[in-house]
Design a protein around this nucleic acid. Structure first.
Lengths: 220, 220
DNA sequence: CAAAAGTATGACGGTTTCGTGACAATCGGA
DNA sequence: TCCGATTGTCACGAAACCGTCATACTTTTG
């Protein structure tokens, strides 16, 4: 946790309060120092004041954003909608108005971390009520096993491993069939057969969708 | 966007304001209705009041959290630290106190969406409320998918990858079409079609702007 | 102010792309 | 060997898409 705040009293009290809550805190009095400290040793979260001498808070936020996607919370005395919008647009994740209740601050920090961490989670092969288990060689739809042929299964696994990404017919041909060329219609046919088995309405697919002109993708 | 709020006047004004900002909005007057609406057709974001008849806001948040990790924003008249902490602990991502400035609300929604989507494992180029995902073959405007054709999509990706830079028609022709010569008017036509789909007022574009005599660029 | 250059847009025919049913070849277990 | 399951090919209709052109509009130039 990195606190960037020019007012000595507030910086100190914030630091102490956060340390009381169990955070490891470093502090800086200017945007320049704060950015330098962050670059030297990136913090997991940054608290920043808006009114700073030299580079102001907005610049500081933009600087941090350029370096990474660390969660940024603004703590400012200014409660004008304009400032709030500007700070959020600059890349902040939250904005609190001084004086802050330490309990609210920590609750907001937890919410933000939960959200930020969710992004780092391992990709899963669960898609709503469809489960794909590449190793077990099985596919469950609403808990019920689905009987897929080998080709259909490998096709689905390939799509599942790149969930949300479009795979072109060429990519699928080379990865599922190990053809480096060949009729792309082949892919269509097997996509169609796969849909018959795992879509509720094969006519209007909701899981295996086609990206016209690009290929197919599996939605989560 | 799903709005859950029991007060008719507030629900209506929130809905209208958000629609003015370009969001597609559904509304519910009770937590039960809201949860049912969400389960039937999950929204990309949920706005929820705390004081609701029957199931209250906290239950509503927990119910939504059980179903998924949709971004949840609380809008409440209660400005007590206790309520804020409780709502965030229940799983909300942000908490605004009524009356809310619509500009602040939309700025917070954008910030939250940016954060929530960062975890989607698909790299995203963000331009205000426009998100471009080259790998997913997908473009979102205020969270709603936009149906682009392959050419429009490639054109937008090319512009997005050079955000702010002017690209000449020749450059676009060679990169998007792989023509090393050809009629430059072709680019105009597709820029026009693209604008129809991603500009609020296609007549006065704010995202895809023309640099007269030079080409086009995408503003961030 | 008129002409020229540059840009926007609607319409239209030809082309591409997609989904599907039919069918023959191939595979694999009994 | 036999037979059903699986696979790859083909052809066709429907829908979506693309590029061209003509025209109208806007900005710059002379």
């Amino acid at each position: 946790m990195l606190v960037i705040e020019d007012d000595d009293r507030i910086r100190l009290s914030l630091t102490l309060a956060l340390e009381d809550e169990g955070y490891g805190v470093r502090a800086a009095a200017t945007a320049e120092d704060g950015l330098a400290a962050y670059r030297e040793d990136p913090a997991d979260t940054v608290l920043v004041d808006l009114m700073l001498p030299g580079l102001d808070g907005y610049d500081c936020i933009r600087g941090l954003r350029r370096d990474g996607d660390v969660p940024i919370v603004v703590v400012s005395a200014r409660n004008d909608t304009h400032d709030i919008v500007a700070a959020l647009e600059a890349g902040a994740d939250d904005y609190l108005i001084k004086p802050v209740a330490i309990k609210e601050l920590t609750a907001r920090l937890r919410a933000l971390r939960r959200r930020a961490r969710a992004g780092a989670s391992v990709p899963t092969l669960t898609f709503g009520d469809l489960e794909v288990r590449p190793l077990a060689g099985e596919v469950l739809l609403r808990g019920e096993p689905v009987a897929l042929t080998r080709t259909e299964f490998r096709l689905l696994c390939e799509l599942a491993e790149h969930q949300g990404q479009v795979l072109s017919r060429q990519q699928l041909l080379s990865r599922v069939w190990e053809y480096d060329f060949g009729d792309e219609r082949l892919v269509d046919v097997h996509i169609g057969r796969l849909r018959q088995k795992i879509e509720d309405e094969p006519g209007t697919p909701r899981r295996v969708v086609t990206a016209r002109g690009l290929g197919y993708k599996l939605l989560r």
